[in-house]
């Protein structure tokens, strides 16, 4: 999992920093960039279609740890599909975003899931299914239950959000962070995949001393 920020100074010894790479995937115009923008700035605005990718970081100070989320927002158009693997490489979590007013976009999110499943082992990545645009309730094409049911069947996190009216955006990122931390705790005694946490090397990724 993420490199654990070994204590940079004695003060932070009990509050490690974890850095996680979170990638946003989904069809064009489902609101990936808007979710990121809402989360970062707590505001809404029309954004340009993402070309390639954009990148943001957000720091969460939680009780037991500090979490730095590196959010990679990807291009939704099919033409950019072949470059997307550049961006989800090494991700710790993925938000599969669809638009509740457009049934096709859920299908596309399911395809993304398939692709991720080929790329990652189940316990290597936290995946959340996110139905965005709940503010457009009257145009809804995908019932909440449908998304929820699918997410349950594949053990994904699930949320319906609205970047526009600020519904559950923070919560979904928080849920992802919590799940990541929980997995960290479960695997802490024996680092998975035989990786040693090299304190010297991972120190570099520590946010503690510089954040």
């Amino acid at each position: 999992m993420a490199q654990e920020g070994a204590a940079g100074g004695s003060l932070e010894r009990h509050c490690p920093t974890y850095i996680y790479k979170v990638v946003l995937l989904g069809s064009t115009a489902v609101g990936k960039s808007s979710l990121a923008y809402r989360y970062m700035k707590n505001d809404f605005q029309e954004s340009l279609p993402t070309v390639g990718c954009s990148f943001f970081t957000k720091i969460l100070r939680m009780e037991s740890a500090t979490v730095k989320l590196e959010i990679w927002d990807t291009a939704g158009q099919e033409k950019y599909h072949s470059v997307c693997h550049l961006y989800y490489r090494g991700a710790h979590a993925a938000l599969l975003v669809y638009d509740i007013t457009n049934k096709e976009t859920l299908g596309r999110a399911k395809q993304w899931l398939k692709e991720l499943e080929k790329e990652f082992l189940h316990d290597e990545i936290v995946i959340a299914l996110v139905g965005n645009k709940t503010d457009l309730a009257e145009e809804r094409e995908v019932p909440t239950e449908e998304g929820e049911e699918f997410a349950r069947s594949r053990s994904l996190l699930f949320a319906e959000t609205s970047a526009k009216s600020n519904h559950q955006v923070k919560d979904v990122f928080m849920a992802v962070a919590l799940q990541l931390l929980q997995r960290e705790a479960e695997t802490a005694p024996a680092p998975r995949r035989g990786q040693h946490v090299d304190l010297g090397a991972s120190r570099a990724r520590t946010g503690c001393c510089r954040v």
Binding site: L48, V51, G52, C53, F55, V83, L86, Y87, R89
Partner: peptide, 18 residues
Amino acid sequence: LGVISTISLSWFLTLFLS
């Protein structure tokens, strides 16, 4: 870091406009 391939795509595709 693998950065070039990650970041420069939009520089080229939008001539820095984005």
